[in-house]
């Protein structure tokens, strides 16, 4: 077990580019933390809330559902609107339009509305108010690998990072209550708000990259984010055999940045097969080449987190 019961260590798994294998590797790490000889009681977080896939492989046995109320959107009371068009002029999100009838009144497009309330305060008739919106749900689930906090942002809603922060906070409290020593955060792609929220408070960032021009480009960007927030970073290279020259470039770049490469995972069809079965690769195929590589990565992570 990891020591230091008073501090739950946080590992965040990121990539910049989508589709490099973050979730498959996160799920395998969750399984290895649960079952390998480097056993560590962990709580998992799926921080990719608008394309949440970790639960598809960890297969919760039961889930507790909570509503997530995020932003608000403005709504105009048609009966009070005098058609002065001030709200349309004030709105910087192009969310207010004349009603498609001859009343001369206005309406708010809820998809474009940012909830800034400029129109609410500007309206001389007090005809506009903000209506709170349920932006999604979040779940506290039990899986055979440990507890999982995950969420589903409703399609098209603002991914401000707030939902990520919320489920991470609940996961951390739960980890403290259950004496778990590791928080495994499967991060979203990109480098923006939800990524920054996923990184907050992390003790170590594992970047999953792939040897492609796009993968390397985005690896450099996500490493920049971790460096900016002074989070120690390590890297693993997935799908190494698709472009061996790219692997060499990643090695050179990592060396120049003094970032350790914890492992190299070959392209392995077993990963897709395990995903279709709804299992982490290490459960049905412990001897697959990718499973063996991820086990080595886990052992390295374990030594860095203890």
């Amino acid at each position: 077990m990891l020591t230091q019961a008073n501090h739950v260590k946080q590992l965040v798994i990121l990539s910049g580019k989508g589709g490099t294998g973050k979730t498959s590797i996160s799920a395998a790490i969750a399984d290895l933390a649960h079952s390998s000889n480097k056993q560590t009681l962990s709580v998992m977080v799926d921080a990719d809330v608008d394309a949440a896939n970790l639960s598809l492989v960890l297969q919760p046995q039961k889930s507790e559902v909570h509503e997530f109320w995020g932003g608000s959107v403005a709504e105009i009371d048609k009966s009070k609107c005098i058609g002065c068009d001030l709200c349309e002029l004030l709105c910087r999100f192009d969310a207010i339009f004349p009603y498609p009838d001859d009343t001369g009144t206005y309406f708010v497009d809820p998809i474009a509305c940012d909830g800034c309330a400029a129109c609410v305060f500007g309206c001389s008739q007090e005809a506009i108010r903000l209506i709170p919106q349920q932006d999604g749900n979040w779940f506290h689930s039990e899986t055979r690998y440990g507890e999982l906090f995950h969420a589903e942002l409703f399609p098209g809603k603002e991914n401000s990072g707030k939902l990520v922060t919320l489920i991470k906070q609940h996961a951390r409290l739960r980890a403290e209550d259950t004496q778990a020593s590791l928080l495994i955060v499967d991060g979203p792609p990109g480098i923006g708000c939800p990524v920054i929220s996923a990184c907050a408070g992390a003790d170590l960032g594992l970047i999953v990259t792939e040897p492609s021009v796009a993968g390397i480009h985005d690896f450099q960007r996500i490493l920049g984010v971790l460096q900016h927030f002074k989070i120690p970073a390590v890297v693993c290279i997935n799908k190494t055999d698709i472009y061996p020259e790219g692997v060499e470039k990643i090695r050179q770049f990592s060396a120049s940045q003094e970032v350790a490469i914890l492992g190299e995972i070959p392209f392995d069809d077993h990963i897709t097969q395990a995903m279709v079965q709804g299992k982490p690769i290490t459960t049905p195929f412990p001897d697959a080449p990718s499973s063996r590589a991820i086990l080595e990565i886990w052992e390295e992570l374990f030594s860095r987190l203890t």
């Binding site: 608008d50 474009a112 399609p155 098209g156 603002e158 991914n159």
Partner: peptide, 14 residues
């Protein structure tokens, strides 16, 4: 478009 299905994708689709 960016990946995902949140506001940045909506902005692109607009």
């Amino acid at each position: 478009a960016p990946p995902g299905a949140s506001c940045s994708v909506v902005e692109t689709l607009h």
